[in-house]
Design a protein around this nucleic acid. Structure first.
Lengths: 268, 268
DNA sequence: CAGTGGTCTAGACCACCTA
DNA sequence: AGGTGGTCTAGACCACTGC
């Protein structure tokens, strides 16, 4: 791909960007905003070495002119990169490529996304459904999900693999009353987001994740193997829909001897 | 404080906000941007119940008009609140107060800030310095801090309290060569950010935090007490300065039986 | 269909850093 | 002193939601 980065010529808009900002048909393809396109372009330039690690990137004004978008749009894209720790911005100085960008495995705002977590560690993720069962809710679950005594749950147990290694044992419980499709039709290998969309007709609005330490239990040991009785991480997730309605609980036993949970954070 | 929220009258700018946006003397006080002032005002209204949990907040245009700032500025403030999970925004609908806001103990981008973590759990934090010593770097530390064999470190050990309960045992190691003030003058009860500023003349640029599980060791048990041999969280922090220079390592033994590490995350 | 949040623009002034 | 990122404005059009 040829990019015109020089400053002299007036020939802008030569990059692959800005080709589909036309307002119609935006929802056909993956609805890319201009800022997102800029973000992806810059990400690609960082990854392929056009912008070297530790080096200073072009200024906001330069990028704005080169790409033919407003500076505000450039800033939106840069803000996203900075939030993920990929670049460092210094007022009065410039924007630098963070040489440690690859050291983190997780991005903020994606702690619940186990697939991305595994990818961030450099493995190929896959999901193996273990069981889907219907059972009464425990007292704790009744409280956490705002249910009535006697209400039932769907318990979806799954095993996440990093390459061929089992790394996360996940148990999601969802009120049975929310189910909108036959229980048997559920495809347990889907992303939890898609499961909620397809079978529950619900959109997840936000999540609260508790990170705890625990000792590997008997059940988890069967699937995760390794040294018995060792310490593991437990990600306790609560998923909520609109109006703060509790949708589901997730209990994820996380083998942190294989998988790292690490985050880059810009200093405020 | 009297706030004019009504829509009929043209009397805006009645709130305490927008009183110090005058451009000079901004650096004397805590340099508050207009967006930050809006952010704080909205936060206060959420906290004091002016905006009830779960209810819909005024629209961006209404806030913009009421406060006499541009919609973009309002959006900046709202974005910050949304990032911290305090509000939920729905296109075509409105902005809602997240009733679960208080459920999280940590804010994104502040995982390294142990003081804030303790505050987020509803305790009063305090720091007790244990020891400051100078010693040779281990092989691992030489690698992680980009040192030469034989280089020395400063090891700063501290104990963090939540009210009267010891909850975090922290060990920070910093290359001795970075020290710019007498070793004896270091005040170990300061925030790590201030320690770097005062005694090392360095500004921390970003941090990478690894979250791991571990078994409570003998040394940590002495300080944290509780059940021996139980699982704890370990926050392994690497601090970096400008130019990706490694500044320090932190090893924080985190008693998650007292302190919760929980995060709110908006669904993307 | 009216109103909401989401996106984008063009221009301005500022604080800050480095030379 | 010149350039950088940080902030703010006023206006515009869009996609989406709920009535």
């Amino acid at each position: 791909m040829k990019l015109i980065v020089g400053k002299g010529t007036k020939s802008k808009r030569q990059t692959t960007i800005i080709l589909q900002i036309g307002k119609p048909f935006m929802n056909l393809v993956q609805a890319k905003t201009v800022a997102n396109q800029v973000d992806e372009l810059l990400l690609e330039r960082i990854r392929d070495g056009s912008y070297l690690p530790g080096s200073r990137m072009p200024s906001e004004s330069e990028l704005s002119e080169e790409l033919g978008v407003s500076r505000a749009t450039v800033r939106t894209a840069l803000a996203k990169l900075a939030a993920n720790g990929l670049i460092l911005r210094k007022q009065g100085d410039g924007t630098y490529v963070n040489a440690r960008a690859g050291d983190a495995s997780a991005r903020f705002g994606n702690l619940w996304d186990l697939v991305e977590l595994i990818e961030g560690n450099g493995f190929t993720p896959s999901i193996q459904p273990l069981s889907i069962e219907r059972r009464p809710a425990s007292e704790k679950e009744i409280f956490a999900l705002a249910l009535e005594p006697g209400d039932e749950l769907i318990s979806l147990r799954r095993l996440f693999f990093a390459d061929q290694q089992a790394v996360i044992l996940a148990d999601n419980v969802i009120p049975f009353s929310l189910l909108r499709e036959p229980l048997e039709s559920i495809d347990g290998s889907l992303h939890i987001r898609d499961i909620f969309q397809k079978y529950f007709h619900q959109k997840i609005s936000f999540a609260i994740t508790d990170i705890r330490s625990a000792v590997l239990g008997v059940e988890a040991y069967k699937h995760l193997g390794g040294e018995a009785g060792r310490a593991i991480l437990q990600l306790q997730v609560s998923l909520f829909g609109k109006n703060n309605l509790p949708l589901a609980l997730g209990l994820n036993d996380f083998d942190d001897s294989t998988l790292r949970l690490s985050l880059v954070q810009a200093w405020s």
